[in-house]
Amino acid sequence: MIKKTDAISLVFIFLAGLLLLFIIAPIVGMFVSTAPVAIFEAAKESEIQQSIWLTIFTSITATIIFSVGAIPLAYILARKNFILKKIVLGIINIPVIIPHSAAGIALLGVISRDTALGKIAESIGFSFVNGPAGIIVAMAFVSIPYLLNAAIDGFISVPERLERVALTLGASKRRVFFTISLPLAWRHILTGLIMMWGRGMSEFGAVIIIAYHPMITPVMIFERFNSYGLNYAKPVTVLFICICLIIFVAMNMISKKRKNAETR
């Protein structure tokens, strides 16, 4: 009996190791095959710098702007029961399952210059297509499910009884939301925000359809690879992966620190 279990454990460990290797190997391989000097050179290039800043800026903006609608939607989905709830829960995951280039095409149908939304933007003096606004919309579209799902889980984990008690303590519904529901669901929401940001930053397919220029880093990597080949694309790729990893690890550490502070 024990032998059998051991055999299974060994198989599991082997398979798990193989999978981890699958994730790590290409990244490590790229780091190894890229000369540090080339990475430093890439970091000094103003075109690359601008592109990285643009990517960080648009992904943060997308996360912040769209969380304003996503958090209330998550709250409603966690607390209320209504007829079409299951359908709505399905709808919010659509961006995950459709090809992102298709998402870009679909979005273009709503925000290009000859649409109502496009015209309004134009009259205010900006354009979605080939502009940061379009990049933000594309990033938000593909990454919003991560925030929504985390926030729904977060609000479900808050006991409704605490909200009701807060009402009997004279708090308005608004105050109950901001002082009880939101803080208690915050850990989940913060994880969702980080995931949404990370996913937005790495988006390529939807963005390239809407805005080839100004160039976010994933598009720039593609362009360099397409025009000049693998070796020329590598330094900027490694640089961008490093920045993504640093941000991701740092954010996770902050959220963990917060978790500890909350449970005290």
């Binding site: 009884r161 009701r164 008690v165 807060a166 009997t168 303590l169 708090a171 519904k173 208690l184 909350e262």
Partner: peptide, 19 residues
């Protein structure tokens, strides 16, 4: 509305705000 009734309720279960 609940918040305007000025009636205090102490539940049997723990209802303190954990944060």
């Amino acid at each position: 509305p609940i918040q305007n009734r000025n009636i205090g309720l102490v539940y049997q279960n723990q209802t303190l705000f954990p944060h």
